[in-house]
Amino acid sequence: MMIAHVSLPADDTAKVAETLARIMNGTAVPIPPGGPGAWMAWSGDELVEIEVIPRGAVMQPAEGGGNWQPQAEAASTSRRSECHFALCVDRPAKEVIDIAEAAGWPSTICDRGGFFHVVEVWIEDAFLMEVLDPEYTAAYKASMSLANWHSVFGTAQAALK
């Protein structure tokens, strides 16, 4: 299984897509179905696609399928989000930080409870993307399994019906 793509909000969609593409050694292109100003960043191997949608546009059910529609009024003045994603890349953490800082985005290396490390990149100082370089990816893969999760946190596995 794999996640085919993710989307995130941005104020400067082109700059965000171009910076994400740079982190992934890829390419940024407009995404017309996302509406005016929507962009996507493709990884160099074309296995990852990140859609960058103008902040305030929300997915709405519509005839023929859901699409992005601008909200008449923002529900909150906060630019923060309930969600984030983690991205494994081929670049060293230092290069990721350099690229993020060149874009004006706060970034730092964080320890995730002794399980693994990530580079926290705050896209436009609003949306969290965790970036794992090759070393961090290996630690993530070694520590993040359902069995390990149950072992560490004492959670019971839900029965599947």
Rank of each mutant, 00 (worst) to 15 (best):
S7P: 03
L8M: 14
P9M: 05
A14K: 04
K15G: 03
V16P: 13
A17G: 08
T19C: 09
L20Y: 03
L20R: 02
R22T: 05
R22C: 08
R22V: 00
M24N: 09
N25I: 00
N25W: 06
N25V: 00
T27E: 15
A28M: 04
A28D: 08
V29R: 12
V29N: 13
P30I: 00
P30S: 00
I31P: 02
I31W: 11
P32Q: 10
P32K: 06
P33E: 06
G35D: 07
G35M: 05
P36A: 12
G37M: 13
A38G: 12
W39E: 01
M40A: 11
W42S: 01
S43K: 02
G44F: 13
G44P: 12
D45M: 03
D45E: 11
E46D: 13
E46H: 12
E46V: 05
L47F: 03
V48N: 11
I50E: 12
V52R: 09
V52T: 09
V52P: 12
I53Q: 12
I53G: 14
P54V: 00
R55I: 00
R55C: 03
G56T: 00
G56C: 04
A57V: 00
A57G: 01
V58Y: 02
M59P: 11
P61I: 04
P61L: 08
A62K: 07
E63L: 13
G64W: 00
G64M: 02
G66Q: 05
N67G: 07
W68P: 02
Q69A: 15
P70R: 00
P70S: 01
P70H: 00
E73C: 02
E73I: 04
A74K: 01
A75H: 06
A75L: 13
A75Q: 10
S76H: 09
R79D: 12
R80V: 09
E82S: 11
E82Y: 10
C83R: 04
C83E: 08
C83F: 08
H84G: 07
A86G: 13
V89H: 11
D90C: 01
R91P: 11
A93G: 14
A93N: 14
A93Q: 09
K94E: 15
K94L: 10
K94C: 06
E95W: 04
V96T: 13
V96H: 14
D98S: 12
D98E: 14
I99R: 03
A100W: 11
A102F: 09
G104C: 11
P106L: 07
P106D: 15
P106F: 09
S107I: 05
T108M: 12
C110R: 04
R112T: 04
G113M: 14
G113Y: 14
G114N: 02
F115K: 08
F115I: 08
H117Q: 14
H117P: 01
H117L: 00
V118I: 03
V118P: 03
V119G: 13
V119D: 15
V119C: 14
E120D: 14
V121R: 14
V121C: 15
V121Q: 15
I123P: 09
A126Y: 07
F127Q: 10
L128Q: 13
M129R: 12
E130R: 12
V131G: 07
L132A: 13
D133C: 12
Y136E: 14
Y136A: 15
